[in-house]
Nucleic acid binder design. Structure first.
Lengths: 149, 149
DNA sequence: TTACAATAATTGTCTATACATATAATAGGT
DNA sequence: ACCTATTATATGTATAGACAATTATTGTAA
């Protein structure tokens, strides 16, 4: 469906405005569906992302600031997300031996198990939610990379 | 900057995963900059969007559910956003004469004035934040429209 | 070594999203 | 007219995003 129909706006000021609106709308479309996928597991999309980051380094621990660096949303609060994951026993925190300011975060076995359970569903979801073929995905990735300058 | 560098992830499972991550990351990039633009005016991006919707219909009033329909984020809470705008006297609420369940929302003169002040800044912002030429913007719009199926 | 700047993480506050539920008014069928 | 379903809006609650401020620790330079 064209963005004009989706938000019932016939005209846009210029292609810049249209593309910006289209980005925001499409993101909201993706995120709202994604939320439903993770909900049965009691995870938010950002919590899932943090688990992915931790698994990528496992069994090495990762500091909170490194998590922050790699998060999709740089402004979100890694400290609090980690706290939520810890309450669910999906991650472990320990004082960093070389720098007492830092906190080492490690994914637990339960965390890894949850990711494994989600793996196939997430792959299917990605294919379903993005109705593009591989060539179009490549073009989209290029355009987004260029968009950010 | 390529998405791989931006979030320091060397590889992605497949192009679907990469495009999804790229969408989320790029959206976050846009929204965080957009927030700074509106902040001096005490508006959030969604509040701005609601004002735009109301201006589009002015001087006709618009019901809360119509606003909801046209919002970029369909899951957000139009009722509360309108309440915030009313506190700033940027919109007016009045009972709909033909259906007492509905509430007619109209943008005030102050609301129109604020939009007018923002107009040029927003246009410049859109051009700055999207580092693409017009042909690329068209392609991006097409891909996003197709993406949503 | 002491003083000050820089860094890592946490906490507080406001706004917004997501979603469930509540309240009130209207529409439709009998 | 009456009952019920639907619709429009509002409200409650949990999570998250944006951003300022705080605390604790480390680095650095006089």
């Amino acid at each position: 469906m064209k963005i004009e129909e989706a938000i019932k706006q016939k005209k846009f000021k210029d292609p810049y405005n249209k593309a910006l609106v289209n980005m925001l709308y499409t993101n909201s479309y993706i995120v709202s569906h994604q939320g439903k996928l993770f909900k049965p597991y009691g995870l938010s999309p950002e919590q899932y992302n943090v688990l992915r980051i931790l698994r990528g380094m496992h069994p090495e621990p990762v500091t909170v600031s490194t998590i922050q660096d790699r998060m999709l949303n740089k402004m979100s609060n890694a400290s609090r997300l980690v706290e939520k994951l810890k309450q669910k026993e999906l991650v472990r925190r320990s004082e960093c031996p070389t720098d007492r300011r830092q906190v080492d975060i490690t994914i637990t076995e339960e965390g890894l198990k949850m990711l494994a359970e989600l793996e196939e569903q997430v792959n299917q979801f990605n294919r379903q939610i993005l109705q593009l073929d591989e060539q179009e995905l490549d073009r989209l990735n290029d355009l987004l990379d260029k968009l950010r300058g």
